[in-house]
Simulated assay, not measured.
Amino acid sequence: MSSLETKPAPTSPVRAAMGAAAVDTVLILVFAAIGRDAHHREEPILGVLLTAWPFLAGAAAGWIIARAWRSPLSVRRAGVPVWVASLVGGMLLRALTGQTVVLPFIIVATLALAVFLLGYRLLLAAAAQLRRRQGK
């Protein structure tokens, strides 16, 4: 390696966990925003937060239960627990607070949250595997 080339600094565990938690949060907010837009709901910002908070609370519970900060980009150790907790916790909290919980919404939420919360982790894992193969 020449003196002009620099090797990227490894990501610290705290930074990786904060980044993954931020991405999870943004993707859940995007999920809520897409849903609200599809149904032409009013109050875009407050409405998105109202729709998203149960799923965000569920995701936070998933992070704690799975101790996802230990391996925040792992599909199995972080992604799946955060996805399931955000979905189940979100639906339970919606039901408890009088928000709509109907089968079509559960199906859409299941698929959308899986694509979002598992998808980026799967892409990162595939990219890391490709880098390892190219490095051999």
Score class of each variant (00 low, 15 high):
V80C: 00
T110R: 08
I28N: 02
Q134A: 13
I28S: 00
A109V: 07
A112D: 01
P13S: 11
Y120G: 04
G90E: 05
L46Y: 12
P44D: 13
A38E: 14
L93R: 03
A66C: 07
F55S: 04
A59C: 11
A125I: 03
L4V: 14
L73S: 03
A61T: 14
G35D: 12
A21G: 06
A127P: 00
F105Y: 13
A17T: 04
A114F: 00
G119M: 08
A16P: 00
Q99H: 11
R121E: 01
A22M: 10
T51K: 09
V80S: 00
L56M: 05
A78E: 06
A33E: 01
L50A: 15
V48R: 08
L50F: 11
W63C: 00
W69G: 13
G47I: 14
A95F: 06
A66S: 15
P72H: 05
A60I: 15
T11L: 13
L117D: 05
A22S: 10
W69C: 09
A59V: 11
A114S: 04
M18W: 12
P44S: 14
A32L: 08
K7I: 09
P44G: 15
L118I: 12
L56P: 02
V88F: 12
P72C: 00
L96P: 07
W63R: 02
W83R: 05
V14I: 13
G89R: 06
P81N: 06
P81G: 11
L49Y: 07
V80Y: 00
T11Q: 04
V26F: 12
G89P: 07
L29H: 01
A22E: 02
R76D: 01
V84D: 03
P54V: 10
R94Y: 07
S71I: 01
V30L: 15
M91Y: 01
I65Q: 03
L27N: 02
L92S: 07
A114T: 02
W53T: 11
R121V: 03
L111S: 10
A16N: 02
V30N: 05
Y120C: 01
P8N: 06
V30S: 02
S3R: 15
A20D: 01
P54H: 06
Y120A: 05
A33T: 12
R133N: 10
A109P: 08
A85L: 12
R67C: 06
A126I: 11
